[in-house]
């Protein structure tokens, strides 16, 4: 039924709810940060997970790494359901799944030298002698384009881009097969972003890594990902290869998201028709019934707000080959194009 053997990672109906406590221990409700997410990743691919703040993309990444309690669902990693493992067993699996963090400043302990930072995972998994460890650290620093001579310096002596490289070196120390990158370039200056993105691409080729690339910036995601999943209010609304997603988005949210992104070209900007969404993101504690997007959906509005959008949550279904969308009227876009 599921081809878990072929997929490195398979996420099935993942739900992560955060309880809202109301004073005296009683629960008033829950923030449905991730609300039934399904996807799988093949070895060596990069899946981009995009969405705006509060859509649950980071929570999904952290749930996969078992960094926060999963409410329900299954996460198969290398064929093994992580949710059924004990804490200790999960710690053993951590060698194979690593994370690159967003903030290059808070992700490195200010009291650790670069070499100590990278040594931490090595020590946890008893890498070997002091000498072997030092060699490995030098090797990793070179791999991420840093001079190994800096190993004994402290993080505060480095720029954001360099710190991010150090974070990447740490995440690669144990030769993981899956790396979850949570907004790895959003805190960096534009001219430095490209350096880090290229580095990640090169490393992926070199070490045949599998990346789950979480970001809000669609231009960046499009660039680095082979497939992209778009999230809105805890659900994946569209998922396909990055080319199709940009060429022909099927979900109205994806359409709006794409059109909202400014392109550095004034002539093009003038010509583009921008879909400006009305209103704000609804609260994930109380998402709209039916399709979560129906309150802001321009397509539903254009069609006279059909009943089904308000009552029935659309399933994420294959609308054309390898192009999944969760919209009752996904064909509408295709027809308009055709």
């Amino acid at each position: 039924m599921n081809n878990t053997s072929e997929n490195l990672l398979e996420v099935q109906d993942l739900k992560v709810y955060f309880p809202i406590a109301s004073g005296i221990g009683t629960q008033r409700g829950a923030i449905k940060a991730v609300d039934g997410v399904n996807f799988s990743m093949k070895k060596g691919e990069t899946l981009g997970l995009v969405g705006e703040s509060g859509c649950g993309k980071s929570t999904t990444g952290r749930a996969i790494l078992q960094l926060l309690p999963v409410t329900s669902g299954k996460i198969f990693f290398q064929g093994e359901n992580l949710n059924s493992l004990s804490l200790n067993q999960i710690r053993q699996r951590r060698a194979n799944m690593q994370m690159i963090f967003q903030d290059p400043f808070s992700s490195l302990d200010p009291r650790y030298t670069i070499s100590q930072v990278i040594a931490e995972p090595l020590k946890n998994f008893r890498f070997g002698s002091q000498k072997a460890m030092q060699n490995r650290i030098s090797e990793l620093l070179e791999l991420v384009g840093m001079n190994p001579a800096y190993a004994n310096r402290f993080p505060h002596e480095f720029s954001g881009g360099q710190r991010q490289r150090i974070g990447i070196a740490r995440s690669l120390a144990l030769n993981p097969s899956l790396v979850i990158a949570d907004e790895p370039v959003s805190a960096l200056d534009v001219s430095v972003q490209a350096q880090v993105l290229n580095l990640m691409e090169d490393l992926q080729k070199k070490l045949s890594l599998t990346f789950l690339f979480i970001a809000h910036n669609l231009s960046v995601v499009r660039h680095i990902s082979s497939r992209v999943a778009v999230m809105y209010l805890g659900r994946i609304v569209e998922m396909t290869d990055s080319k199709s997603l940009y060429a022909m988005p099927l979900h109205p949210y994806t359409e709006a998201l794409l059109s909202a992104i400014p392109i550095p070209d004034p002539v093009l900007e003038l010509k583009r028709e921008r879909i400006v969404l009305k209103g704000d993101l609804p609260s994930p504690a109380n998402p709209p019934a039916g399709c979560h997007f129906h309150t802001r959906c321009p397509r539903a509005a254009a069609m006279g707000n059909p009943e089904i959008c308000r009552t029935e949550a659309p399933q994420l279904l294959e609308k054309s080959s390898n192009h999944l969308a969760a919209c009752h009227f996904a064909d509408y876009a295709a027809k308009k194009e055709g």
């Binding site: 960094l67 690593q98 967003q102 992700s107 302990d109 931490e120 995972p121 946890n124 998994f125 144990l174």
Partner: peptide, 27 residues
């Protein structure tokens, strides 16, 4: 605890006790 290096330590397989001794106490 909110700092990402604590989370990073967890993802690299450090136990809570190791995190406390290596990262919390020195800081």
């Amino acid at each position: 605890k909110e700092q990402q290096f604590i989370e990073a330590a967890r993802t690299t397989g450090s136990t809570s006790l190791q995190i406390i001794i290596r990262h919390i106490l020195p800081n």
